[in-house]
Amino acid sequence: MVSRVLIRPMTEADAESVGEVGFAAWAANPVLNDFGTEMPECVHRAFCDFAATGSPVILVAERAGEIVGWTAREGDADYVSDLWVHPDHQGRGAGRALLEHVFSLMRGEGIERARIATHARNAGAIRLYERCGFVLVWRGMERSAAMQMDVEKVHLEKAL
């Protein structure tokens, strides 16, 4: 049985947990962490820095008082810049709940489409996005600010 997930805005007190959840999700995915021995430290720092400064744009998924995932809308209003679920909680509805909440907010803002992107070989994320109604619109090389390198990415869109 999947327990209920509470979606709420991140608070300053959540920043450390948000950074750790994002890094744990990234580190558990071999597709995302096969870029050299220095990369985990760089990415861990990027997650922690973003969480420390990104509270206005971050929503967290909480289950039984524990932050199990989070999402952010940084940049364009129709763009979901981040979606991270702790590996111990993947496949239990937190990612979908976060996306559905973001879709509701976007509709309330009059936004007609949602955009998201991920590593081109991140099959689990792509599968979730497609199950939530996204369709693939682009595949190619793109600069990752957190990783400071070009990576193969896919862009997906969903009509709201």
Score class of each variant (00 low, 15 high):
Cys132Val: 11
Arg127Phe: 07
Arg131Tyr: 00
Ala97Ile: 05
Gly65Glu: 10
Gln148Val: 06
Ile111Asp: 06
Glu130Gly: 01
Met141Gly: 11
Ala97Asp: 07
Glu109Tyr: 00
Asp82Arg: 10
Phe134Gln: 08
Arg127Gly: 06
Tyr129Pro: 08
Arg113Met: 10
Glu100Val: 07
Arg73Ile: 02
Tyr79Ser: 06
Arg63Val: 12
Ala117Asp: 15
Trp138Tyr: 08
Glu74Asp: 14
Leu83Arg: 02
Leu105Cys: 13
Arg127Leu: 07
Ala117Trp: 01
Ala94Gly: 09
Gln148Asp: 15
Ile126Asn: 01
Asn122Gln: 07
Ile67Val: 15
Tyr129Phe: 15
Ile126Phe: 00
Gly93Lys: 09
Arg73Gln: 09
Ala123Asn: 05
His119Asp: 15
Leu136Asn: 12
Gly91Ile: 08
Asp76Val: 00
Glu100Arg: 12
Gly65Gln: 08
Val68Ser: 03
Ala114Lys: 06
Val80Arg: 04
Gly75Asn: 04
Ser144Cys: 13
Glu130Val: 12
His86Asp: 12
Ile111Trp: 03
Val60Tyr: 10
Leu83Asn: 05
Trp138Ala: 13
Ala146His: 04
Arg121Asn: 13
His101Leu: 07
Val80Gln: 11
Arg121Ser: 13
Leu105Met: 13
Val68Glu: 02
Leu99Lys: 03
Arg127Asn: 08
Thr71Trp: 00
Glu130Ala: 11
Gly133Asp: 06
Val85Leu: 07
Ala64Met: 10
